[in-house]
Design a protein around this nucleic acid. Sequence first.
DNA 1: GCGTACCAATAGTGTTACCAATAATTCGGA
DNA 2: TCCGAATTATTGGTAACACTATTGGTACGC
Lengths: 255, 255
Amino acid sequence: MSAHADHGGPARRTLHNRVLAELGPAIAAGEVEPGHVFTLDRLERDYGVSRTVAREAVRVLESMRLVVSRPRTGVRVRPQAEWSVYDPQLIRWRLAGPGRMAQLRSLNELRAAVEPPAAASAARRAARAERDALVDVNRRMAEAGERGDLAAFLDLDIEFHRRILRLSGNEMFAGLSDVVAEVLTGRTTYQLMPHRPRPHALRLHAHVASAIHSGLPEVAEAAMRAIVIEVVAALDEADANAAGPPDAPGLTERG
Amino acid sequence: MSAHADHGGPARRTLHNRVLAELGPAIAAGEVEPGHVFTLDRLERDYGVSRTVAREAVRVLESMRLVVSRPRTGVRVRPQAEWSVYDPQLIRWRLAGPGRMAQLRSLNELRAAVEPPAAASAARRAARAERDALVDVNRRMAEAGERGDLAAFLDLDIEFHRRILRLSGNEMFAGLSDVVAEVLTGRTTYQLMPHRPRPHALRLHAHVASAIHSGLPEVAEAAMRAIVIEVVAALDEADANAAGPPDAPGLTERG
DNA sequence: GCGTACCAATAGTGTTACCAATAATTCGGA
DNA sequence: TCCGAATTATTGGTAACACTATTGGTACGC
């Protein structure tokens, strides 16, 4: 694994975090179904923790809108449609569970919607030094790709997209950096990426970088759109493969 | 005020919620600056609450990535760039504070990015009955607009956009319904809307509805794009007015 | 002088016990 | 049958205390 992981520190290892790390994924995966009710006592006994710890875990789940806690009733799991699906923690839980392909699809469609306008904004608003830095990241990315260093490539790819989202000057766009990072990481982890970056994709990334560098919003947007469209297509293809004959395993090599 | 408010129940009135309702906005508004450190003891004394309550409030703030809590150090406010900007609660806090115009701009750009693809998806994926229902909402919306019932119009406008996001079949898109609702409500609240819905905007909404109804993704996407582009333009104009001469007050009437 | 190892102070973390508030359920009376 | 009041299970809130991680200083040694 590489070092792109958590921007905000990898969640201190406290007891209530340990409870969260078990309860959260279970709810996210649907093992504990919406409508199900449990009590604090139950948590205390199941996880061997004190009331305080159980309550803090429930508070966090409640702030993610995964559960609602009421006197006399207990803690009820809310219907999926009410969850805070943008919570980074919840996204990670779902990517780790059985719904990961569906989650990747959703997130990719979100990327496809947001990144092109973000690239356009970056071309309009980014400061000179930042534009230079972006081109440099793109150069190192291409180098890593050419020498087949997939780990480095992934890190730089993430860095590339993260920068563009940040340079857009829109903090909502910037707030999706972690999501994009998860998606890119997930694609690699689940073998949805070619084993060697495709030259065409590399060229598109270079186009985006240079368009932003030259302050050409429309060009940057179009090039980014080409990138994300291809990613969506690759995912669809992977789905088709997965639904296909079992003697054609996770092979998505296309370069 | 109208009844579109909270889909998930208006946050039970508990003590730790009261603390959150004061601390959260203060941090969100920058009154308590990033880097600032406070202690649980401090919270206990300031708000006259027990340690348990103070801790639960901090846990929630921590899960929103607004603060980080560590032994021997205390509770430190994190830099803004690390906040979970998609948290509905945080969005509401910021919309209530001095940064509301900046927040509305960000959110509008997000809408502009997401809603057109969402409309396209809806035209592809929505079930028959849902398409009919959407057209019906649009009809009622037009009626409310024609008779100048702004409150009903706002509710139906929100309902309209919420449905499209849900019909897109992408839960990340659907997860933005509350955001869109806040933006639409905010625009009305802060007088950024014409006092009577503009006929052109009404026609565009009708186009979106009918394109989704007929299963025409490209048309739906284009029409929705026209809607959000106009909204962005209206916001820019409002900014210009606000920066203009003081004898031209918040007048953004354009119909 | 500089780095390392130890030590002590400090604040969060975790536990227990208990009482208050709340709301679903039940049961009785009109 | 329906309404309302008593019942009671469960969370909400308080208090006091032990545990432990972190840090900043200090003394020791190189």
